[in-house]
Write a protein that binds this DNA or RNA. Structure first.
Lengths: 335, 335
DNA sequence: ATCGATCCTGCAAGCGCTCGCAGCAATCGT
DNA sequence: ACGATTGCTGCGAGCGCTTGCAGGATCGAT
């Protein structure tokens, strides 16, 4: 019996207008006479009123929210994407629902379906999710797939091809004739793409490649594989990502193998880890922020024009040379 | 004119029951006869129906969603907290709305207020937000403040006191008599706490302290301050966080100063960065996952019992000794 | 056979907002 | 000066769900 002291109704009473007008003041301000609007806004301010997004969503059938599914937000790679998505979405007046699946594909699926009902669109970063399930999700809700390409689904990817080609050329120019390629996770789209890119580039330049993996892309697996790469006689190591590269770096330091004097190491993703390592890590940069930004744009575009053909945006990558790569040693690696 | 093919209504038609019953099947399953329920669920399954959280929220006045505000999700420190929050919230059937304020206090405030309306409770990680504003937010929506203590507001903090005391004792035991203390950001709650802890411990043990800062807690500021610390004659450096410690490590390596032979370095937060550094970084671990988990629990508890007294949960910290700390050199630092 | 209890289900109002429609006043055209 | 626009506002239905209330069925007890 508070006379509608809260909600649009309360504001309406205060301002001496109808709830509809209050609504219009927030939704379509130009539709209401300036003085009226001022009165309403003043009343709203006074009462600390803000329209309920929930109610609005229900009425509108749109939520003003985007869903973002990532495998592991604690992984800087995904965190940076998430940040970019956030920022871009907010600029466009969208909020972001974040779901971390903790690398668990089943959760990923369930989560996506749950999320699907409460967002306008979904951004899916799920390098290892089953293709069929991905398809199912996409059918339920407008989606954009990030860093993975799926036919018929709009996506934005950064396959790192150019950057890895540059990396191989860089190493070749430095006199390296034998490199170790450390693969990432099995079934990972990007690991496959990256492997291909390195293999192809190496073949063209006549550089020998020894492959290791697939491996869980962790620090300690990097450390473990370092010894193998050395034993195989490689003078340069191209790792699936920065984290593994750091593991390699650590193990090499432990063994007294100098980087880059004895062995060169290249990472990928150019995350914070690469820049803060010592020696600073030569790495393939992929524009993570652009990835996130473009994914949002693509999704928003799709929301506007649901019938537009699914587009795949391909982002460039480039090699960032730092201290971890140098001329090949004259005689194989040290010890 | 689809005869209500979608929504609870459609399911109801299919199953030959009323929408109310469908609703009850999902909300209070025990209230409906097993066979009826089975029929309804089958129909729901067949139609791929899922209750709309939006509509439910509106009707219930609760959203089943928690808001999480962080300054920078790309910062591993916050990312790990976010992950823990996510995981815990999901276990309790809550979704999480993530807002990254990009270190911008004004945004933080606006965002919080916007978020406040569409979540049941708010987790605020905002080390530098103005206290009054924080208070305002807390008044609007049930909140828990993370890693910062505000009187009258439930919070969960990890002041790092124990860990830093251990760090100073550790260095003292190694023969260090003069350490450099690198402060973090001005107005940062944790930076102040950490500074206090180090000062106090050092004084008790008769260790000299030279302070530097406050500084933006970035890699490059760490690098910059390394030279100053060295010039001041410190043989050990305690950095505000791991990132700065890595900057210091990098600069020292560049100058040919050996760690830990010439200088010892201690970080804080024990993030991924500390473990992947080489030499691996001695760091003060604070249980970030517990921080997130407890924050969620505290908030949920508060939602259940709004009148319970605001509690401050204090989490312990501990020193993790790795390779970056060692015995003090006989004669001040090298070069 | 009768009367409560108990169990299950439907009815209908309502959550807070949006928006098509209609009414009214002010403005414009000729 | 009169009808036609145009601008602003209110009315009321409806978004998809929940839930108090009440009615019908079922069952056990008397």
């Amino acid at each position: 019996m508070n006379g509608g002291a809260t909600g649009a109704e309360g504001v309406a009473a205060q301002a001496g207008v109808s709830p509809s007008t209050v609504s219009r003041c927030f939704a379509t301000p130009h539709q209401v006479r300036p003085e009226t609007r001022a009165r309403v806004l003043a009343a709203a301010e006074r009462l600390g009123y803000r329209p309920s997004r929930i109610a609005r969503s229900l009425a509108l059938g749109r939520t003003g929210t985007l869903g973002l599914i990532v495998p592991d937000i604690a992984n800087p790679f995904f965190a940076v994407i998430a940040k970019a998505v956030q920022a871009r979405a907010r600029r466009k007046d969208y909020a972001v629902f974040l779901a971390d699946t903790d690398e668990h594909p089943d959760d990923e699926y369930e989560l996506a379906l749950t999320l699907a009902r409460q967002v306008d669109g979904l951004l899916v970063v799920a390098p290892r999710m089953d293709g069929d399930r991905l398809g199912e999700i996409v059918r339920q809700v407008p989606s954009v797939v990030v860093n993975r390409s799926v036919s018929g689904v709009p996506s934005v990817v950064a396959p790192s091809e150019d950057g890895l080609r540059q990396a191989v050329a860089h190493l070749h120019a430095l006199g390296h004739a034998h490199l170790a390629l450390i693969l990432g996770a099995r079934n990972s789209w990007s690991s496959e793409k990256r492997g291909q890119a390195v293999r192809r580039a190496a073949q063209q330049l006549g550089v020998a490649v020894t492959e290791f993996g697939p491996h869980e892309p962790k620090f300690h697996t990097g450390a473990q594989v370092a010894d193998l790469a050395l034993a195989a006689g490689a003078t340069a190591i191209v790792a699936h990502n920065d984290l593994m590269a750091l593991g390699i770096l650590a193990r090499l330091a432990e063994r007294g193998v100098r980087v880059p004097d004895d062995v060169s190491v290249v990472g990928a993703d150019d995350t914070l880890l690469a820049t803060t390592a010592s020696p600073a890590l030569t790495s393939v940069r992929i524009p993570l922020d652009a990835l996130g930004r473009q994914a949002v744009d693509l999704l928003l575009h799709r929301l506007d024009q649901p019938e537009s053909p699914p587009r795949e945006t391909v982002l460039p990558s480039e090699l960032i040379v730092r201290r971890s790569t140098g001329p090949a040693p004259r005689t194989g690696p040290a010890p």
